Amino acid sequence: MRVLLVEDSARLSELIVAGLSAAGFAADPAATLAAAEAAAEAVPYDLILLDLGLPDGDGAAFMRRLRRGGCLTPVLMVTARSGLDDKVRGLDAGADDYLVKPFELRELLARCRAVLRRPAACLGPVLSFGDIELDCAARRVAVAGQPVHLPPRETDLLELLLRRGGQVVGKPAIEQALYALASEVTPNALEAVVSRLRRHLAQAGSAAGLHTVRGIGYMLAAAERP
């Protein structure tokens, strides 16, 4: 899952990005609304974490601009403004949830997962294709009912492919979803993740295959009948 963090406190931003990354999210920090707007135009984010008070403007106004422009990306406002009027203003501007600073990182992560499970985000709590099943909240994978341990990056790739089960997902879309903007991605990084995921599924005896569509991307497909 790709997350845009709009937060002007360098220290807090660093801590949140570290927590998100440890939880399996690819997080891009933006310290201003101008940087956030540029990032949102360049990358299809799964979630936006948005402060209200930014150096170059108001987060709620930015939120309204996003919604007027047709942006449906879930937004979790994370701000020190704790008044009821502030909360109502933020939610009415189009935010999906509101979290007051200071907060525990565990609560932030739980709220991120909760927002991403909502129907508006087109994310179900459990995804399946053939004999593969993924609990998105718990990040648990099973093949034919048996648990399979996957590293975070392989789990993220599997989730992306499960959401497009039977369809080809292009390499650029996968790389955008898996890696933050600041990440140093080697030319063969994605191929290595695909290879490891394919090996894990094969070792688990999955009847579904992870297929390479040369020059385009990858897809999950049911095993061909003999």
Rank of each mutant, 00 (worst) to 15 (best):
L84R: 05
D85P: 01
D86R: 03
V88E: 04
G90E: 07
G90N: 07
L91E: 04
D92Y: 04
G94M: 02
G94S: 03
G94T: 03
A95M: 04
D96W: 02
Y98S: 05
Y98D: 06
V100L: 02
P102M: 01
P102V: 00
P102N: 02
P102S: 01
P102D: 02
F103C: 01
L108C: 06
R117L: 09
R117C: 08
R118H: 03
R118Y: 00
P119C: 00
P119F: 00
A120F: 00
A120W: 00
A120M: 01
C122M: 06
C122G: 09
L123T: 07
L123F: 05
L127I: 03
S128N: 14
F129G: 15
E133W: 06
E133N: 05
E133H: 10
L134C: 07
A137G: 07
R139W: 10
R140C: 10
A144H: 04
G145W: 09
Q146R: 15
Q146G: 05
Q146P: 01
P147I: 07
P147M: 04
V148K: 12
P151E: 15
P152V: 05
P152I: 04
R153P: 03
E154H: 06
T155H: 08
L161K: 08
L162T: 05
R163Q: 14
G166I: 08
G166N: 08
Q167F: 14
V168N: 08
V168D: 14
G170I: 04
A173N: 09
A173W: 10
I174E: 11
Q176W: 14
A177E: 13
A182C: 13
S183R: 15
V185T: 15
T186N: 12
P187G: 04
P187C: 08
N188D: 15
L190C: 03
L190Q: 09
A192S: 11
V193K: 08
V194H: 03
